[in-house]
Nucleic acid binder design. Structure first.
Lengths: 225, 225
DNA sequence: GTCTATAGGACGATAGAC
DNA sequence: GTCTATCGTCCTATAGAC
């Protein structure tokens, strides 16, 4: 990974001439960055996939890194705008709200196969860029910020709807149970020798399994700690 | 990522002359593969880190890829030998056994910082190699295999110690809650603006948080699904 | 076992015609 | 906007002396 820290945009946002070359490049690049990571992806392969010449990448985008960043930002934008607002939706009770978040999370990950590996490559690298993306996404959604989210959890606890505890652990539970099974999908499919159809079933049942865990815990005899 | 599928070992296992050059290379390579991934890591940087010449890498290891594989295998070996055997330890009841697994998992991840990103890079790539490593590790530990693990879970359910449900969902719960918080550490540290000390605390408290979730669920009013 | 030197190719990026 | 052709660099891997 040889990404540096620069910035500055480039050609117009409004050029949709040329048969959408720019967006074809974006799609092609998404595939290759998702499959090989930033360092493994080849500009030549991206150009071939998009059906254009390699030089076109540098006409539409400043360089490989800017192309990559644009893809990351746009992909994480969608999940933020789609999933997080549920947190501050007032017409649902705590349980309903949390389970809605979990299942919309699961649904979203299911429908966006490339997001999985884009996210993992960034996490692996320590994500200095991803964290700046996440930060600016928080800022771009009015009325949503880290404190607000934790505040909501705090209110649920005070209202007696949720067990008392560190809101961050609470948050980690939700994220972990939703994201990890998608992240590890190829590995688990291979180890458990499942077809992708079987794993899809597993993920479809996942929302219920998580709801059951949240409702009843894991053990039947509930001696406290 | 331009890893191909080859095999065949090389120089002797028993050459510990030369001041442990071979193992110094392994340590250096671990650092760079963990930080940059296979494609991002540079053989020159590994050699420099190990304090040897680049040509030494190719004396001790067939090529970059074989070096990488050896590192992956050895690192995942440790977690397998250390964590999984708890699953088949007979002198503990179900609850005790599961919570032991979780906390030894957490402890292990805490003490092996490089494992985190090595694992994530492999997951991102879809891990065709990692899955073969995991497979052979399962085979290398007598009395441990996928069916055995699920069998244990099945027995716990039949004995009434654990809520009925798909053992695979059960397994996903445990893995998710333990691994994800480590995987996402750098990102969450940045977003939550925590020092690494604070995140360490969070991870130290994690075993108890998971135990509480397993014991009581997440909600106080326990209306069933 | 360890080094120097370099082959040989791949890759990101650009110049310039159309 | 899109192409061809090419530059300059970086990087893995090896040849060969010590």
């Amino acid at each position: 990974m040889q990404r540096s820290e620069t910035n500055g945009s480039h050609h117009g946002e409004g050029d949709e001439r040329g048969g959408g070359t720019r967006s074809r490049i974006l799609e092609a690049a998404t595939i290759h960055f998702a499959e090989k990571g930033f360092d493994g992806a080849r500009t030549q392969a991206i150009a071939d996939e998009a059906g254009v010449n390699k030089a076109m990448l540098y006409y539409h985008f400043q360089d490989k890194e800017h192309l990559y960043r644009e893809i990351l930002t746009s992909h994480f934008q969608v999940i933020f705008r789609q999933v997080f607002p549920t947190f501050i939706q007032p017409d649902l009770d705590a349980r309903e709200r949390l389970l809605t978040i979990v299942s919309s999370y699961l649904g979203f990950l299911r429908e966006n196969p490339h997001l999985r590996s884009l996210m993992l490559y960034e996490l692996a690298a320590g994500g200095p860029y991803l964290s700046s993306v996440v930060r600016s996404l928080f800022e771009s959604i009015p009325g949503l910020d880290v404190e607000r989210v934790f505040g909501q959890i705090g209110e649920m606890i005070e209202a007696g709807a949720v067990r008392p505890g560190d809101p961050r652990q609470f948050f980690l539970h939700i994220l972990s149970l939703s994201i990890f099974p998608f992240a590890a999908r190829p590995l688990l499919e291979s180890i458990w020798e499942l077809g992708s159809g079987e794993y899809d079933e597993l993920m479809a049942e996942r929302a219920d399994a998580i709801a059951d865990l949240f409702d009843h815990g894991l053990f039947t005899g509930k001696e406290a700690s």
